[in-house]
């Protein structure tokens, strides 16, 4: 079902390198020695059934969840170092921030949290809002925005923090078809024009097949496959490949 080589570009800059990551919740092993590499300036998708450990892995990258063994490096820096987090932005499945904040307030707040200097604030905010298509809604309160618009605010809050790696957890969940298409376009634009690395946890196989460069499939905390999207043989969809891997037919 595959052609070409697995993702092993040792000489390129990796955005994420995870080695032997173990995470236990009591006696349950959520991550069972997970190994993963994500190339810089790429769109990478982590696929897996519910409970596979996708969100746990994503949160370990951010230090929101502690792991017991192994190590994770972000652009060469261990995740235990606070500096690593300056490079990483996180968009949860449902971006929530205080509903009484306006879009502008929210962006300005995240800028401040990331220690971005005030000198070019308005210019940067303007540019970012234009990038995510929220220029006309900048004075609206978050409580009045749709889910898709909130996701865009979430992305804008990552961009003003000048993050190189964006971690998106189920970004298409709950979006209507138009919202999904717009968000896919935004992700592609971020990679192409801003040079971002985008790591996506997703169940949306068909969406991911269209936009991702590389993918990994995990189940029960273990990586079962990690490949380039181009390596799928003609006629074999990501869905076919995923199904076969998970059901152990491959």
């Amino acid at each position: 079902m595959l052609e070409g080589n697995e993702v092993t570009a040792t000489d390129t800059e990796y955005a994420i390198v995870a080695r032997g990551v173990h995470k236990f919740y009591g006696t349950t092993e959520a991550l069972a020695g997970l190994d993963l590499q994500v190339k810089g300036n790429s769109i990478f998708t982590l696929l897996g059934p519910n409970g596979a450990g996708k969100t746990t892995f994503l949160k370990t990258i951010l230090g929101l969840v502690h792991f017991q063994r192994g190590d994770i490096r972000i652009f060469g820096k261990l995740t235990s170092e606070l500096e690593s987090r300056a490079q990483v932005g996180y968009l949860p499945e449902r971006f929530y921030f205080y509903p009484y904040y306006t879009v502008l307030d929210t962006i300005a707040f995240f800028m401040a949290l990331n220690g971005v200097q005030k000198k070019n604030n308005s210019e940067m905010i303007e540019k970012t809002l234009e990038m995510v298509g929220m220029s006309t809604l900048s004075k609206r309160r978050l409580s009045t925005l749709s889910k898709g618009q909130l996701q865009r605010v979430g992305v804008a809050s990552l961009l003003v923090g000048q993050k190189k790696l964006l971690l998106l957890d189920e970004p298409f969940s709950g979006l209507d078809p138009l919202g999904t298409k717009d968000f896919k376009d935004l992700i592609l634009k971020l990679k192409a024009t801003e040079g971002k690395t985008i790591f996506i946890n997703s169940h949306g196989l068909s969406e991911m097949e269209k936009i991702a460069d590389d993918f990994a499939i995990i189940d029960k905390g273990k990586c079962l496959a990690m490949n380039s999207m181009k390596s799928l043989l003609p006629g074999v969809t990501l869905e076919d490949f995923f199904t076969n891997i998970i059901r152990g037919k491959n």
């Binding site: 987090r85 932005g89 949860p92």
Partner: peptide, 12 residues
């Protein structure tokens, strides 16, 4: 509300 995870994902 989940705001804590968004905030703690920042370099703080």
């Amino acid at each position: 509300s989940g705001v804590a995870s968004v905030l703690m994902a920042q370099p703080l």
